[in-house]
Design a binder for these strands. Structure first.
Lengths: 169, 169
DNA sequence: GCGTGCCCGCAAACATATTGCAAGACCCGT
DNA sequence: ACGGGTCTTGCAATATGTTTGCGGGCACGC
């Protein structure tokens, strides 16, 4: 389904470019070029290729949740009653389409799903539980944890054996 | 410390702009302007203001972990021995600086930390546990869960009462 | 040895972002 | 109600960044 490129398709230039773009994708290609020892057009063609091949999935702004009134992060473990493919798919769908659900993982172990949610108030969360969990009779149990501190938040991914080759000359 | 703007500082134009930027921050300001009924310079000034005030925290490319060889997502609950401010701070630091840790939450409840990690192999993860958990004698216990499906992954935040005002004319 | 394909850099063309400026909206104190 | 100040807008001009056309180098296979 994904048809995305494998790591072997990426050379050290690509990885260095990704490393920069994951920090700031508004960095001018000329600057990126200087950092990785490549011309701006070359950088641009590599970026384009990685976008087309699915290595770069999206280019987005990260907004501070507090600034839009979402100050509460909650983690939710969800256990379902029946694990039939159909019902699991339905659950995935309902979680994925909920805007307050930032991340949803289908997991191994005691419980079946793990959600990271972002809400403005506990009242809003309570309201959501009614439709998302209580309203779904395939949900057997759910356990809510409130986050005190979002110590680290990011989507940055570092290739296993990647050392920032700052060849500055 | 954060001094970030409150939601009351953002009007419906700002929210509409954020909504677009969170999907694709390469959208030309002219196009954004058309979508929200504002001129390009006005859009640009609003974006700049939101960047400076911390509403927009970053502009990044999202890369497909599989493309760089990181195919395994694990969730880890960590319980510490002593919850002294100093030791908690040290733990936060060690988790936050680990590249494989995508997200780290300091939480209420039975356990103290919740981590989302991304690794290439289980061997790599095992190696990390040695330094991150076994190597820290303030870590009492940790529980690892393997993710089967990353159903939804994102940092998108929707303001509570925000309806996409698609005024298409 | 000679195509062929791939990727490079340079320079030109093109698109986008940014700034200067004047005008309109609003608030507030008089 | 009037004037002064502030804020934000749109337009037009400018600066900056991206993209493409082109020629050249290099590796591979015939």
């Amino acid at each position: 389904m994904s048809s995305s490129a494998d790591v072997s398709d990426l050379d050290r230039f690509d990885l260095a470019i990704l490393d920069i773009l994951q920090r700031d994708n508004t960095t001018p290609q000329r600057v990126i070029g200087e950092a990785v020892n490549l011309s701006a057009p070359s950088v641009q063609r590599r970026i384009k290729r990685m976008e087309e091949s699915g290595v770069i999935k999206a280019n987005v702004s990260i907004v501070n949740p507090g600034s839009v009134g979402c100050n509460i992060t909650v983690l939710v473990e969800v256990e379902v009653v029946t694990e039939s493919a159909e019902l699991i798919e339905a659950a995935k769908q309902s979680f994925a389409t909920c805007p307050q659900v930032q991340q949803c993982y289908y997991i191994t172990g005691d419980t079946d799903f793990f959600l990271v949610m972002l809400v403005a108030t506990m009242a809003e969360y309570e309201q959501l539980t009614k439709t998302l969990f209580f309203g779904n009779n395939n949900v057997k149990r759910f356990r809510t944890t409130v986050v005190m501190d979002r110590v680290k938040i990011g989507m940055t991914v570092s290739p296993p054996g990647f050392t920032k080759n700052q060849s500055h000359s």
